[in-house]
């Protein structure tokens, strides 16, 4: 697994985490190149469907991040998101998706360091977990046999 480079899809809010990633860039912090950010206005916009679709499209892990409670540009989008994530993360764990495959975080516009550190940490963890073959190999065509794990 040494050569395995994970694909990580991130959904981030534009006001905090996207800006935090900008700050990490402006500060020239280095972190692994495995994460692709998809920008949304608010974590409240992030749908559980996005996470499933990212996995279907070959993501080995998903990162979801936004403003800390109290910092939300829209006051409470992140607090609604938190409830959804609470339920959805438990659901994914229940059906056997390793909790290391979905990371939730709060990263503010000032936390460039936290962003860089988190990307480094998540990438290392997913490297250790290996490719998400069990999801990727689920058949996409009718009639194929299950070969999960």
């Amino acid at each position: 697994m040494a050569d395995f480079e994970p694909n990580i899809t991130a959904f981030v809010c534009t006001w905090c985490t996207y800006a935090g990633a900008d700050l990490a860039g402006t500060s020239r912090m280095k972190y692994p190149a495995n994460v692709r950010l998809i920008r949304v206005p608010c974590t409240g916009r992030i749908d559980a469907l996005f996470i499933l679709k990212a996995f279907e499209n070959g993501a080995d892990a998903v990162l979801v991040s936004g403003c800390h409670p109290g910092d939300c540009h829209y006051t409470s989008g992140n607090l609604h998101a938190r409830r959804r994530w609470t339920v959805f993360s438990e659901l994914l764990d229940f059906v056997g998706i390793d909790s290391g495959r979905v990371t939730f975080s709060w990263i503010s516009a000032a936390e460039g360091r936290k962003f860089a550190d988190l990307i480094t940490e998540v990438t290392a963890k997913v490297r250790a977990l290996g490719p998400f073959d069990s999801y990727r190999k689920m058949s996409a065509a009718a009639g194929e046999q299950s070969n999960a794990r």
Binding site: A48, L49, L52, K53, E56, V87, F88, L91, L92, V95, M138, S139, A140, A141, A142, E144, S146, A148
Partner: peptide, 25 residues
């Protein structure tokens, strides 16, 4: 199309997960 309509493993997984999530609470 968020959920594969055919009865594939992926479509079944997405459907059953999303249904459980949509009924949560």
């Amino acid at each position: 199309q968020w959920i594969d309509t055919s009865s594939t493993q992926r479509g079944n997984f997405a459907w059953n997960i999303v249904r459980a999530f949509h009924l949560a609470g």
